[in-house]
Design a protein around this nucleic acid. Structure first.
Lengths: 339, 339
DNA sequence: CTCGATGGTTGAGACGATTCAATAAAATCT
DNA sequence: AGATTTTATTGAATCGTCTCAACCATCGAG
C-alpha cells in the first residue's frame, strides 16, 4: 500500500532525486555525509527500489525465463538448479515455466516472457521446429535451446541421445540379452526418437540375432511406465523380453514396480535400464542402471551461453554444445544368468 | 534489438497512441475500421506490448512469487503445479523460487520479488518466525504462508502435521509395533517438529510400553535417509526398531534402500511410513505407506487466498486454512508378523 | 435551425527510476 | 589572491504505456 518512491526519500534526506539514485547505484561518488543521510531516509521510510521503473528506463532486465517440458520430472528440476546456481552469481533471477509438453502452454509462456522483456529465454522445446522461437529470437530476445540441438540460428546445449541409446543397447547385448524392449514415449519428442534410434543402431550392429521390441506411450510418466510393465508381465515367459530400456527414469521406475508386483525379479527375470540418472534411480529398491546426463552442467552451460550473448551481442557467434552421456551400472542390469 | 513501441504502431496506422492503447485494452470501443488498421500495423511491425511499462503505469503486476523450501522435493513441485493451475485461469504468472532451506537465499528471493512489485508472495518459510515477512507484508505486498500456520497477521494454508504424526503412530502401534523410530530432520523446521510431536503423542497414549527412538538429520534428503538406514541396519536385531516413521518420503525412500541393500525385508523385518505421498512413494519397489497431504489443493488454496486479498484489500480478513492429512497404507507397513 | 446526445479519437500528463549536461562549491596550484 | 582543476549535487529529459478530459463529427429530436 504505502510504497515509497525515490522522490519521498529525496525530500526527507533534503537532496535531489538524482543524488538518491546515485546512492543506490554508485555510492562511491557521493560524499559520505549525504550518503548517510540518504540511507537513513531509506530505512526510515522502508523504501524499496522499484525494479520495474528501473528496468523500463535502463532497458535491461535481470531475469531469464526457463521453459521446461515437465517440472515433475526431477531431471528438469536439476537442470533448473544448475541454471539458477550461475544466475545467482550474476544477480539474475530464473523464472521456471512448465510447458507440460503442451505447445499451447509453451506459447503462452513465451508470450508472457517476451512481454516482460526478459533478458533471454532457455527452453526445452515441445516440438522439433517452432517458427515462433525463431521469430522471437529475430525480434531480439536471445534464446538458448536446452537439451535440443539448434538449427544454427541460436545457441544450444544438448546431450547426444543417440549415443545414449547406443550405450544402453551395447551394454544389454554384452550382458547376453537377445530380446530387448524399448519402452518409449511419443516419437514426436526428439529425445525419445534419438534414444530409440540409438538402441536400434546398437541392435543392428550386434553379432547374432537380437530382437528389438518397441512400445510407445503418450507420456513419459511413472504411471505410463507401470502400465507398459503390466502388459509385459502378463506375457508368457517365452515371449517376454529379457531386458527393457526405458526412455526415462520415471518410466523405468514404473516399469520396475510392475515387475515387482507380479513377482518378476529384476534383473534375473528382466533387466532394466533407465535414462537421466535422477536421484530416485539410485534410491529405487532395485537400484536402477541408467544413462546419465550432466544435468546441472546442462543448465549451467545454457545460461552461460545466454549471458555471453547478452554481454556481447555484436561479436557473438551462436554455438552448439554437445555433451556425452555415460552409463551408470547398478543392480537392475546385473549380468544375465543362463537358466 | 528492434523492439517496436506503441508510437511506431500509431504512426503506421495513422492514429494516435491513445487509440492503439484502446485497441489493446478495450477493442470494443474503437471502430472496426481503425481497429483493423491498428491490428495490421501491429502484425507488420511485429509489435509486442511492453508489460514493464504497462505495469509501471497501472501499478499492478500479473505475477506472484512462490518461494519453496526445496524444489527437488516433488511435494513442493506439486504444490507449485496446483498454484499454477489457478494462476493460469487469471492470466497470472507464478515464478518459482527455491530457498533450499537457506534463510539467506530466502531473503534474497523476497527482496527481488518485492523489488519487482509482484502481486503477492506465497511462501514456505525456512524459519518459524521471520520479521522480514511481516515487514514485507506491512509495506504492502500480500503474503500467504504455505504449509505453515500464520500468526494471524497474514493468510495461511497448512496441513495438520501433528495429526499426521499421530495417525502414522497410531497405525504402527495398531499393527503391533512396540519399538518405533522417528527419522527426522532439523527440529527447527516446524513441519518436522510437529510430525515428531504427533507421533510422540500417539506413543504416549498407547496402552503398554512403546518405545520411541529419534534421529535428526541436517537435511531431509534421500541420501540422509539412506545414511540413517545404514546405521539402523547395522544394529543387532534385538536393538533395532521394528518400524520407522520418516519425516518425508525422500528420507523414507533412502531408508528403504538401505534396508534392501542390507538384506532386511520391508515390512517383515522393519516397517516404514513416509510423509507427503509423492508419486515416487507408490512407485517404490516396496510401495511406501505414507501420510498424504493434499498437495495441489494446498497450492490452489494459497493462491485463491492471495487473489482474494488482492481483489478486495479493504474488506479482506486474513484466514487460516487447515487441511487434514490421511494415511495411505501400502506394503511397507503391512501387518507385523510375530516371529 | 439549434441543442444535445452519442460515438470515436486525440494528446497531454502521469508512473518511478536513471542519466547526463550544467552548475556550484571546494581544493589545488601559480 | 586569482586561475584552474576536482568533487558534489542538481534537475530536466527519457523509457513505453495508460488514463482521462477535451474535442470533433454526426445524427435525431424539438
Amino acid at each position: 500500500m504505502a510504497t515509497r518512491n525515490i522522490k519521498e526519500v529525496a525530500q526527507l534526506a533534503r537532496v535531489s532525486v538524482g543524488t538518491v539514485s546515485n546512492v543506490l547505484n554508485r555510492p562511491e561518488i557521493v560524499s559520505p555525509a549525504t550518503r548517510e543521510r540518504v540511507f537513513e531516509a531509506i530505512k526510515k521510510l522502508g523504501f524499496v527500489r522499484n525494479e520495474v521503473a528501473r528496468h523500463l528506463r535502463v532497458g535491461r532486465s535481470r531475469t531469464v525465463g526457463l521453459v521446461v517440458l515437465d517440472v515433475s520430472n526431477p531431471f528438469f528440476v536439476d537442470v533448473a538448479q544448475g541454471a539458477e546456481s550461475v544466475a545467482d552469481d550474476h544477480e539474475t533471477m530464473v523464472v521456471l515455466c512448465n510447458s507440460a509438453g503442451d505447445p499451447g502452454r509453451e506459447r503462452r509462456h513465451l508470450d508472457q516472457l517476451e512481454q516482460q522483456r526478459v533478458m533471454g529465454i532457455l527452453i526445452t522445446p515441445v516440438e522439433m521446429e517452432s517458427p515462433w522461437l525463431e521469430e522471437l529470437a529475430a525480434r531480439g530476445t536471445p534464446v538458448v535451446l536446452v537439451d535440443s540441438p539448434a538449427t544454427g540460428l541460436q545457441c544450444s546445449v544438448a546431450v547426444d541421445d543417440r549415443l545414449g541409446g547406443q550405450i544402453a543397447g551395447a551394454h544389454l547385448i554384452e550382458r547376453g540379452h537377445r530380446r530387448i524392449m524399448f519402452v518409449g514415449g511419443p516419437p514426436s519428442i526428439r529425445q525419445v526418437a534419438d534414444r530409440h534410434a540409438g538402441i536400434s543402431g546398437a541392435v543392428a550392429a550386434a553379432e547374432g540375432a537380437v530382437e528389438l521390441l518397441t512400445s510407445t506411450s503418450p507420456t513419459l510418466t511413472v504411471a505410463e511406465g507401470r502400465a507398459v510393465g503390466e502388459r509385459v508381465a502378463a506375457l508368457p515367459a517365452g515371449e517376454r523380453p529379457t531386458a527393457a530400456f526405458c526412455a526415462n527414469d520415471m518410466m523405468a521406475l514404473g516399469f520396475l514396480q510392475a515387475m515387482a508386483s507380479h513377482g518378476l525379479r529384476v534383473p534375473e527375470d528382466l533387466a532394466i535400464i533407465g535414462y537421466d540418472d535422477i536421484d530416485f534411480a539410485a534410491a529405487a529398491a532395485v537400484p536402477l542402471s541408467s544413462v546419465r546426463q550432466p544435468r546441472e552442467l546442462l543448465g549451467r552451460t545454457a545460461i552461460d551461453l545466454l549471458l555471453e550473448e547478452v554481454a556481447e551481442p555484436e561479436q557473438h557467434r551462436h554455438r552448439q554444445v554437445i555433451f556425452q552421456p555415460d552409463l551408470v551400472v547398478r543392480e537392475s542390469s546385473a549380468p544375465h544368468r543362463q537358466p
